[in-house]
Amino acid sequence: MRRILSSITDGKGFDILLVSLTMIFLIVMAGLPLLYNVLMSFQQVDMFNLGTFSRPFIGLENYQDVISQPEFGLVMKNTAIFVFGSIIGQFCFGFALAIFFMAKFPFASTIRGLFLVSWVMPGLVVGALWGFILAGDYGVLNAILQALGVTNGTMFWKSDPNLSIWAVTIANIWLGLAFNMMLLSVGLAGIPGDLYEAAELDGANGWQRFSTITLPMMRATIGAVLALGLIYTLQQFDLFPAITEGGPANSSSVAQYWAWQWSFKLFDFAKGATVSVMMLIFVLIASIVYVWSTRHEVRG
């Protein structure tokens, strides 16, 4: 008994204790709900058997139903636009800003810190802000675009079916920009300055230094940023109810919003679970990429 106790205070037992606390938390709060969700997607669920565990097993019927919905193609297309548009936008602007703030100028780190404001704000607030900015008749964005002469007419960002998914994507790019910039800044700061000096003496111009030193040295960081971007973008929910509510006519509905609509608007929990299981596959791929690109961070 004493040996067990002493191993908990100063030995392997303490390590096991710490790991098992985390594992128990993960299993109870994430693992079991996830399995329950997967199970539910193969069952027939209605309001009467919602409280029980044993429900009729219907195989892939839920999946067939979801796929044969008329809006399925549109939702998938919107999800693809939202995910890839957000990731590309966040990454490119984030990388550009990260490189910009590597330059030494007065208040560089203070200004960089201020960018985090976008990241710490709740999604609903960001959604409301962008709701104002994107508004068709009184929005700032339209005023700017018209003043610059980019467009003459009024762009109805939130109510034009061709624009609505882009409206949410723009807001999400702004929301995730700071996070991307911060992670990429850390990666950039980790590249020793003398590598650039050596490359410069070896005859590399600015673009060659970026493509042969910066990019390859950042491979792990970029992999992690893109994978986390995919995960966070598939999790992004708040902006949809705040800006477009998925409309008009599902033109800005994405998988995660659709799953919520199935479960909590139509109370068809099985279909909601089915859509989220489909998303799970993509998140799983992203997670594998993330774990693979950060494998070198494990240090003894």
Binding site: P192, D194, L195, E197, A198, A199, D202, P216, M217, R219
Partner: peptide, 12 residues
């Protein structure tokens, strides 16, 4: 050409 104190070899 320069040889640096840290060698500055390209690690990748």
């Amino acid at each position: 050409a320069m040889v640096f104190q840290s060698y500055a070899l390209y690690p990748h």
